[in-house]
Amino acid sequence: MPLLSEGIETRQKQRRKKRNSYALLVGPSVFLYGVFIIFPVIFSGVFGFTEWDGVGIPQFIGFDNYVSIFSDPVFLFDLRNNFLIVAISVFGQLPIGFVVAYIIYRKLVVGGKVFETVLFLPITISAVVIAILWNQIFGPSGLLTALMRLLVNDPRYVFAVFENRVFAMVPILFVILWMYTGVYMIIFIANLQSISPSVFEAAVIDGASEGQILWRIVIPAMTNILFTTSIFAISGSLKSFDLIFAMTGGGPAHYTEVVAIYMYLQTFRFYNFGYGSAVSVVIVALSLGLITLLRVSYKRIEKRFG
C-alpha cells in the first residue's frame, strides 16, 4: 500500500510541477499583453463615456461623446479619407501586387528575382522617412513642380494638389501604394508557390492558354488569400497614422486628416481625453465591423460558388 500512495504523491507532484512550469512559460507574456494592451482597451471603453481633461475627475456623460463624434463634419470627412485608403488598398495594392506576383511566379520575364527584390524594398524604410522624402517630391518647391515646369515650359507652375479639398489625398494614396504593394506581392508569391506544380504541368499538356490557367486554376486557388489580404488591407488602412502624420499632419485644413490623427489631435493637443478615448473605440469598432462584413460576404460567396 505505501508504494501506491507514493505513486499518487509523485504523480500529484508532477502535475503541480507541470502546472507551475506552464505558468512560468506563459505567465509573463499574458501579463505584459494584458497590462499594456487589454487593460488600455477596456480603459478606453470606460473613459469614452466621460468628459475628462486628464487632470480633474472624469464626468460621466453617457453617449454624448459618440453623438458629438458622428455629428462633427471634420470626423466625417476623416472617415471619407479612411475609406479612400481602404479602397486604394483593396482595389490598388491587391490587384497590382497580384499581377506582379503572377508575372514573376509564371516566369513571364527574365530576372523576376531582381524585380521582386526592388519592389519589396520600401517596406524596410520607416514611414516617417518615406513621408518626408515624398513631400520633397510633391511639395510646392519639390521635384514634381520642377519636372512640370520643364514639361509645360512655364517657370511659374506650382504643383499644388494638397490645396485642393477633393484631391488632397491623391499624393498620400499614391505613397501608400508605393510603400505597401510589395508586401502583397510577397504574400501572393508565397501562396502561388504553394500550388502544386503538377497542376500546371497537366494544364499545359492539355493545351490550356495562359488566360485559362489564370482563371481556372490560379484564381480559384487564391480566393482564400484574397480574402485574408483584404483583411490585412482594411485593418492596415485604419491604422495609417505615421505616414500621413509626418507628411501633412492632416492638413491643410483637415483635408488629409484620418480618424487616427483626429484622435491624436483631440487627445494630445486639445487634452480631450474622454473624447479621444471614444474615438479610439470607434476605430476598433470600425475595423471589427468591416472585417465581420467581409467575412460574412466571403462565406456567402463561398456557399454559392464553392
Binding site: I37, I38, V41, F47, L238, V281, V284
Partner: peptide
C-alpha cells in the same frame, strides 16, 4: 485567441490610456 485578437488592435487605440497609465 486572446493573443490573436491583439492583431486587430491598433497602436493608436491604446495611446491615450497607455499615456495616462
Amino acid at each position: 485567441y486572446f493573443f490573436i485578437l491583439g492583431l486587430l488592435i491598433t497602436v493608436h487605440s491604446v495611446l491615450v490610456p497607455l499615456f495616462i497609465m
